[in-house]
């Protein structure tokens, strides 16, 4: 049946891409992490998706909730929030595997790209903020 052929094709492609992943260079960690974990939703230019996914580009939230961002990335978020005057309410998954140094680089990438010119984080600051992350229920 055709279905099996489709699945086989997809699986073959999957194996191939896993292989090529091993050769990606470790360069520009913040950007790389963004492309890996965030870009699929927040888009290449940080613009988000209409009323579904909030923008990171010129988002007031990045400044008004600066201290919460490290925990937000690791733990994700849900519930209604307002970004640049627009209401959003959709779940964002966290990325538990990210270490403090990863999160620092990632946040600094976001805070200084997409038209943002916000204050950078130090690794110590991120470590301190993450000690206060709300405990998972």
């Amino acid at each position: 049946m055709r279905k099996n052929k489709l699945v086989a094709l997809a699986l073959g492609a999957f194996a191939l891409t896993s292989l090529t992943q091993c050769f990606t260079k470790k360069k520009d960690e913040g950007k790389h992490l963004y492309e890996t974990h965030c870009q699929s939703c927040h888009m290449e230019d940080g613009s988000g998706l209409k009323g579904l996914i909030p923008p990171l580009a010129k988002a007031d939230y990045l400044q008004t909730h600066r201290d919460e961002l490290p925990c937000l990335i690791r733990q994700g978020m849900a519930g209604s929030i307002v970004v640049n005057g627009v209401e959003y309410n959709k779940e964002m998954p966290g990325v538990e595997s990210l270490r403090e140094d990863h999160i620092t680089n990632l946040l600094n990438y976001i805070q200084t790209n997409f038209g943002n010119k916000n204050e950078r984080y130090t690794m110590q600051e991120v470590e301190r903020l993450m000690q206060a992350c709300p405990k998972a229920p």
Binding site: L6, L9, A10, G12, A13, F14, L16, T17, S18, Q21, E35, T36, H37, S40, S97
Partner: peptide, 17 residues
């Protein structure tokens, strides 16, 4: 890690196929 990329790449290959 990197599952997201894999998925979209995978679909890229699938499209080609």
């Amino acid at each position: 890690m990197n599952k997201r990329n894999k998925l979209s790449l995978k679909s890229g290959f699938a499209v080609a196929a």
